[in-house]
Design a protein around this nucleic acid. Sequence first.
DNA 1: ACAGTTCTGAACATGAGTGTTCAGTCGATC
DNA 2: GATCGACTGAACACTCATGTTCAGAACTGT
Lengths: 179, 179
Amino acid sequence: MSVQSILDVATEVLLAKPSASLGDVAKAAGVSRTTLHKRYATRHDLLVALSHDAYDRVEKAMTDAQLDVPGSEVEAALERAIAGLIPIGPRIEFMYRQIGLDDVPDLVARYEQTGEPLLRLVRRGQEAGIIRSDMPDWWIVSTLDASFYSAWEAISVGRLAPLDAPALVMKTVMRGIGT
Amino acid sequence: MSVQSILDVATEVLLAKPSASLGDVAKAAGVSRTTLHKRYATRHDLLVALSHDAYDRVEKAMTDAQLDVPGSEVEAALERAIAGLIPIGPRIEFMYRQIGLDDVPDLVARYEQTGEPLLRLVRRGQEAGIIRSDMPDWWIVSTLDASFYSAWEAISVGRLAPLDAPALVMKTVMRGIGT
DNA sequence: ACAGTTCTGAACATGAGTGTTCAGTCGATC
DNA sequence: GATCGACTGAACACTCATGTTCAGAACTGT
């Protein structure tokens, strides 16, 4: 069982049941508890590793989405970002729900810097007149996050097709639900 | 310390730290652990009581918001609903994050019926042509929930004024972030 | 002042998760 | 086939939350 697979399974198990024991995680990962302890000495270490892995993936998705574009292409870049985030929905959900890791300076720092690219993109969109300027930039980002999260949730319960998600999120967020 | 206050404090403590012990909860509520155990025999009982309390409040907010209006007034009703939900943000966050209570039939039933009024309102809005019909009703509701939740989060960290929230959510949701 | 109720603090047994150790097994490499 | 490393299962001590009990204190209304 590769390290990556263990992180995958651990994310899944701990999302479904945050109080799951390390024994549960090990069993689900097809690994002995001893081995798990060898890789991650304590439960805390495992949680930190999972968080770092989640940040790694979000950062990679943001880089791949090439968000540093001129204002006129903001909308396309946004859709690329959303499309890139969809497959790593569980990781993001994990980051989001994980509480009590505020005492790890590395993670706090990454939290702030991981959101930067999207924030910059939104600002560029506002300057280019594509995104409303009568709302704060952080609120726009927050709205994007929330809509993406809704989409991920709908996907995870089987109500929304993954391939439909980016366009739906874009339409909803950009034009709203009103007629 | 009244029962209601205990539920308030318990919600707060368990939101900040889901793994908090009953001792922590009791201390925060200014009550002895013995007394807490007398009211709620087990931790599970306490969590169920907290959930029921949260549902009670959401249902009351929905009733107070008078959502059963003709289609032409859907928008105003929506804003009333959002305004009513803001003050009980912590309860809703608790319901949302609480996992592992799926084995309580009462709660599952309430979950489904608590969302009904808003879903009906959205459908009425769609029929009246005020809300887009090219998106599923459940997605509209999901979007509303997500935006409300974003607002609550912003309020809880002090970035958004509670009184500004309903209008901001309405504008964002109905008209989108695009120009 | 009294009786009845509630709350408290302390103690206790229990169970579960955690972290550690170690001898034995498996598999790959040379 | 011998060696080295990784993995395993079992056992162990330890900590901590939980649920229970009980005698005494604080508070209630009469």
